[in-house]
């Protein structure tokens, strides 16, 4: 009898453990993506300065996309620029709420090729920040970035894409459940 109880409690613990492991996969995945650059995930603002400026010239393409049904105007100042590795660069993005309602939006970045994501350092950015705009309001936000001189030789151009999501409803749900 006790051997049966022992088996059951071990198996029950294993079940609970695997349930928790399922949730642990979320942070594990984030760490894994950061290391491998999977999915072009970019980390938040980092501060980096490099001494060896101007070794290589890299072409950067900026793309902006509005997610399904997001009516805002959203664009970068320029669609392309050439930068030197290790050098501080500045780009700015314009957000305009074209509707007659106040809205909250969030822009999610992605770098491709994914392998280059970890060499794209943003020293100041609006990624993962929620942007609240009154009807008709417009705002310009700067993005400062440096390309790591360690960028692999086979990468000569990078693309930084931003997708703008309407999160007004989600924020409402969150406030309501708080």
């Amino acid at each position: 009898m006790s051997s049966i109880k022992k088996s059951v409690s071990k198996l029950f613990l294993a079940t609970v453990g695997m349930f928790l492991f399922g949730f642990a996969l979320v942070p594990i995945y984030d760490v894994f993506c950061e290391i491998t650059g999977l999915n072009g995930k970019v980390t938040g603002p980092t501060f980096s300065e490099y001494e060896d400026i101007g070794n290589r010239e890299i072409k950067i393409t900026f793309t902006t996309t509005n997610n399904n049904g997001m009516p805002w105007f959203f664009d970068s100042d320029r669609s392309q620029m050439k930068v030197k590795t290790g050098e501080q660069n500045l780009m700015s993005y314009v957000f305009t709420n074209t509707t007659d309602k106040p809205m909250i939006a969030q822009a999610i970045p992605s770098v491709s090729p994914g392998k280059g994501a970890q060499y794209f350092h943003k020293t100041e950015c609006f990624c993962f920040e929620q942007q609240y705009l009154e009807p008709g309001e417009s705002i310009s936000i700067p993005l400062k970035f440096v390309i790591d001189p360690d960028l692999p030789e086979d990468i000569s151009s990078l693309a930084l894409g931003y997708t703008l999501f309407d999160i007004t409803k989600d924020q409402m749900t969150k406030q309501a459940s708080n």
Binding site: N39, K41, N67, Q106, F128, T163, D170, S177
Partner: peptide, 17 residues
């Protein structure tokens, strides 16, 4: 239902996850 963003790209989550 509870406003988390495990798989929601808009909230910093990832559908590929």
């Amino acid at each position: 239902h509870f406003g988390t963003s495990f798989f929601k790209a808009g909230g910093g989550g990832d559908p590929v996850l």
